[in-house]
């Protein structure tokens, strides 16, 4: 790193290499609560097969995973649990908001439902649909991989100090 704080030539090159490996070995934590969890299973299974994108190693422990897939509804009882899981994950960590309920509350604008998980934790990518088709999820994962390569995810930006969430 140069004295004025800008990244030098070597660090940027190393970052690019690290991000390249990082994006192709994403270990997801499936936080499936409702309907979307079933479609997430379909995405992980043989017909759609997320392992083609290096994201098949499903880990249920937040310490071992770096992509939090929030699939399904998060209500007022579940929200603190989800925040706990997110806080336990090691940096860099990415969050995919899977489906309409997680992204915005969807058709459930009611007393118990959190209106979007981005009110609770920073989200990198939103996959629309109720539930999203597996093709949509794979598309979302590929967009996330591009973001990781460019270092644009919330966690990587926080690491660089450009944001402070």
């Amino acid at each position: 790193m140069a004295k004025d704080g800008s990244t030098g030539y070597l660090t940027t090159r190393v970052d690019a290499v690290v991000n390249y490996f990082r994006k192709n070995s994403v270990w997801p934590l499936p936080f499936g609560t409702s309907c979307c969890g079933i479609e997430m299973m379909a995405t992980l299974c043989s017909d759609y097969d997320m392992s083609r994108f290096g994201a098949e190693v499903v880990r249920f422990s937040p310490r071992q995973s770096d992509l939090l897939i929030v699939a399904g509804i998060v209500n007022s009882k579940m929200a603190p649990v989800m925040r706990n899981v997110y806080d336990q994950m090691a940096d860099p960590k990415f969050v995919m908001s899977f489906g309409a309920c997680a992204s915005s509350g969807g058709i459930f604008n009611v007393y118990s439902v959190a209106q979007g998980i981005d009110t609770i934790l920073p989200v990198d990518i939103y996959v629309p649909g109720c539930p999203p088709a597996p093709e949509g999820v794979i598309n979302g994962l590929m967009r996330l991989q591009e973001m990781i390569q460019r270092g644009e995810t919330q966690s990587q930006r926080r690491e660089r100090g450009t944001i402070t969430i």
């Binding site: 609560t33 409702s34 509804i73 209500n75 009882k77 649990v81 459930f108 007393y111 118990s112 439902v113």
Partner: peptide, 11 residues
């Protein structure tokens, strides 16, 4: 339980 309560009866 109740971690996915979505108030369908109220809706």
């Amino acid at each position: 339980f109740g971690y996915t309560h979505r108030a369908k009866e109220k809706l």
